[in-house]
Design a protein around this nucleic acid. Structure first.
Lengths: 119, 119
DNA sequence: CCATTGCTTCAACGATTGTTGAAACGTAAA
DNA sequence: TTTACGTTTCAACAATCGTTGAAGCAATGG
């Protein structure tokens, strides 16, 4: 991930509705959610949702697949983790105090220490 | 850090010039950089820089102090680490595969394992 | 086939954002 | 005080963004 992609991803997340879409999709897991479900969940019109979904997709944060009449959107885990890694690499720049607090978040995410999630 | 703050911070980073300001300030360390120095380094006019600095400051990502004729800007490490922690907490949501890659970034930042940066 | 459901495209619009130059402000030196 | 320097404020503008409704396209069911 280069600077351009990272900035695009940040811009994509820097909008309330889009941020909520990403959160909803991450929470939903790999199965994802239909566009219509998302629209009601977030509280925006179908048209508006499509607009935001396109932005997120273009930023590499989500992906979609058709399933019958529905279009299912799901989180692009790789894009998200790339972004986190980039932010930490770029902003830490030899200053552990910046990303040290992330250790706590990490353990909360990964569960008890020692369960080693392999990259 | 709540959702509103996080979205504001992402929006602040979602702009090339602002992103570069943050990177330059993190790299510069606690001493920070004078506004004029930043302007030449980023390649924007003083007026324009002030605009972006105000955004970043409002998003809690940078801070400033006056020193003689100059105004020195520096990275707000707490704001940055809060953002990282929030992103990881919010986006992991029980899915280690999202933030597992961050472990690599973390070790790159913190140096050899065992130097334990305390939160 | 036609009708219906689910989503996307299109065209338009108001609102926000990024950029600019001129003017003003705060600080320090002559 | 006058002058110069560094930064910010102001007013204006083009460009981008977010939202809307109407129309269009894909997929299923009658």
């Amino acid at each position: 991930m280069d600077e351009r992609q990272a900035v695009a991803a940040f811009a994509a997340l820097g909008q309330e509705n889009r941020f909520r879409v990403v959160r909803a999709l991450v929470t939903a897991g790999p199965d994802g959610l239909a566009a219509g479900t998302l629209a009601t969940e977030i509280g925006v019109s179908a048209t508006n949702l499509t607009f935001h979904l396109k932005e997120l997709s273009h930023a590499g944060l989500i992906q979609s697949r058709r399933e019958g009449k529905s279009v299912i959107y799901s989180a692009a885990y790789e894009g998200l983790s790339d972004l986190i890694a980039f932010l930490m690499r770029d902003c830490c720049q030899g200053r552990p105090e910046v990303c040290a607090p992330a250790v706590a978040a990490l353990s909360a995410c990964n569960g008890p220490p020692g369960d080693g999630a392999h990259v």
